[in-house]
Simulated assay, not measured.
Amino acid sequence: MTEDPDNPAPFGGFAEDQQRAHYHGHRDRLRQRFIDGGGAALQDYELLELILFRLLPRRDTKPIAKAMLARFGSFSEALGAPTHLLEEIDGLGPTAVIDLKVIMTAAQRFARDQIPDRPMLSSWAELINYCRSQMAFETHEQFRILFLDKKNKLIADEVQQVGTVDHTPVYPREVIRRSLELSATALILVHNHPSGDTSPSPADVQMTRAIADVATPLGITVHDHIIIGRSGHSSMRALKLF
């Protein structure tokens, strides 16, 4: 019989009792700490443990959570890591990895749903956090556009193109066409650099200027072009590149 890597067969007899004693009491204590103090009461590996409890009911999840953080560097990077790299973590099988990706997608959807009724430009920190949650850990470049109305509220957030690890083709004509379809009066352009280096390339600058040159006469403002990396970001407006 083949063992499920996510849920291995339990130990028998005395060994099974030892396994239960090893981590079941720990799980109860960790849950209680969360009930008493919320997420702020837990370290990153402990919060990962809580998530993994449900995914891996018959495993000690502490070493798995710590291995994820050691491999990927942070809680967000652990959840956002590519599927094939997560499957390299001892104790994480395909089923658990899919479940982690469902949780990551739910977190992204939650962040997106917080945006529409608030001006996008009211908080720079919220804007950056939102963009990071959506694309910081993608392994290929994405070019997305936040379409805004005259009050700078979000009309739509759309991924326009998905490229390779270091290039995404962008067509200014298509950007403007979609802006007019949505009656957008302002845009925030966003793309990610999977390499982690958020410095704008000459092609990034040229493309941004081309979009702004076409948008401005039509009454559409390009507020910024933000480049997102795993550990930082760059604002082309702040860098005065267009």
Rank of each mutant, 00 (worst) to 15 (best):
M1R: 12
D6S: 03
P8L: 03
A9R: 13
F11L: 15
E16L: 06
Q18L: 15
R20M: 11
H22W: 13
Y23H: 07
D28L: 13
R29L: 13
L30S: 01
F34Y: 11
D36R: 09
G37L: 05
G38A: 04
G39Y: 09
D44A: 01
L48P: 07
R58K: 10
T61Y: 08
K62M: 12
A65K: 07
A67E: 11
M68E: 03
S74L: 07
S74K: 05
F75P: 10
G80W: 00
I89D: 06
A96P: 06
D99M: 12
V102L: 13
T105S: 15
T105I: 11
A107I: 08
Q108P: 06
A111K: 04
D113A: 09
P116E: 03
D117W: 01
D117K: 00
R118T: 04
E126I: 04
E126R: 10
Y130D: 05
F137K: 05
E141H: 03
R144E: 09
R144Y: 08
F147A: 07
K150I: 11
Q161A: 13
Q161S: 12
V162I: 13
Y171P: 01
E174I: 06
I176Y: 02
L180I: 07
E181F: 08
E181W: 06
S183A: 15
I188H: 01
V190I: 08
V190M: 09
V190E: 08
N192G: 05
N192C: 05
P194W: 06
G196N: 08
P200V: 04
T208I: 07
A215I: 02
I220A: 01
H223K: 10
D224E: 05
I226R: 07
I227C: 02
G229A: 10
R230G: 15
G232V: 03
H233Q: 07
M236V: 02
M236Y: 00
K240H: 10
F242Q: 00
